[in-house]
Simulated assay, not measured.
Amino acid sequence: MRQFREDAPGQGAYPFVIRQMTHEDMSAVIALEQASFKNPWSPELLRRELDHDWSTILLVEDPKPDGGKELLGLAIFWIVQDEVHVLNVATAPEHRRRGVARAVMEELLARGKHRSCTLATLEVRRSNEAAISLYRSFGFRSVGVRPNYYADEKEDALVMVLDF
């Protein structure tokens, strides 16, 4: 059973709601993935991540005055032993440059610290300058390259690490 705090230790500076994904969110998450990536995560892969004890999918939502909500972004990450491994961060294209990715990164890093993690790792497309800049702003540093990590586009990934 997960021992994550259900409240959001890093929340407060943004007008967004950040919460864990449930199976009921699947259609909205699939739509966000398809809008955000050439090669989105499949429903099967997302279901598997929902069912792993070590995996968390956080959703960033914008509450609406009518009580509804709009999905703005997400992050998928693992906590294994003392490490946070970021698998996926996505922001809906029409909501980029609003702090969505920053908010969800702050939250997932806060959850890692709360669980006494000492390290965070991720891979990012070498061409994704906006994401690289975001990760560097948190203190991530590049420690290597994974050649052709994104095989469909034959693009390398930078391996980045953050020591807590």
Rank of each mutant, 00 (worst) to 15 (best):
Q81A: 15
D152V: 07
V145E: 12
R146P: 03
F164K: 00
L108F: 03
D7H: 14
D62K: 06
P147V: 10
G99R: 06
L46R: 07
P43E: 07
D7G: 15
K113L: 11
I76H: 14
L71S: 01
D25H: 11
N39Q: 15
G73K: 13
L50A: 06
V80E: 02
S116W: 13
D51S: 10
E44P: 12
D156G: 05
H114A: 15
R146A: 04
P9W: 06
A13E: 06
T118F: 05
S127I: 09
R2K: 11
A130V: 03
F37S: 07
E107P: 08
F77S: 00
A31E: 10
P9Y: 09
G73R: 06
N39S: 15
L71K: 03
R5L: 13
D152A: 14
H23K: 10
V60F: 11
W78T: 05
V104K: 04
R47Y: 05
G10L: 00
E129A: 15
G10W: 01
V86Y: 05
K64P: 00
A131R: 05
S142L: 02
L45V: 13
E6S: 10
E33D: 03
P65H: 07
D163L: 11
E24W: 08
T91M: 00
T118W: 12
T121M: 09
D53R: 15
L119G: 02
L158G: 06
K113N: 04
R19Y: 04
M21V: 02
M1A: 12
W78F: 14
R19E: 03
P40H: 09
E107G: 13
T91R: 00
F77W: 02
A101K: 00
H23W: 12
G10F: 05
A75E: 01
K113Y: 05
E44H: 10
V17T: 06
E6R: 09
N39G: 12
D62N: 10
Y150P: 03
V89Q: 10
L87K: 03
P65N: 08
A101C: 09
W41L: 12
E106H: 10
V60D: 04
E6V: 08
S133R: 14
V60K: 08
E155Y: 10
R115A: 15
Q20I: 00
L50Q: 08
R136G: 06
P9L: 12
R125E: 02
M160I: 12
R97Q: 15
S133I: 02
R141N: 06
V104P: 12
P63F: 01
E44G: 15
R2I: 01
D7P: 05
Q34V: 09
T118A: 11
E107N: 10
W54E: 13
D82L: 12
A92R: 03
V29P: 13
L50F: 09
M1Q: 13
P93E: 14
Q81D: 10
V159Q: 08
I18P: 01
A131M: 09
P147S: 09
G112H: 03
L45R: 06
P43A: 09
F16D: 00
E61V: 11
R19Q: 01
L45G: 08
A151Q: 14
E83V: 06
A120M: 12
R102V: 01
S137I: 05
H23L: 11
V60R: 09
K69I: 01
P43Q: 12
A90P: 02
N88R: 13
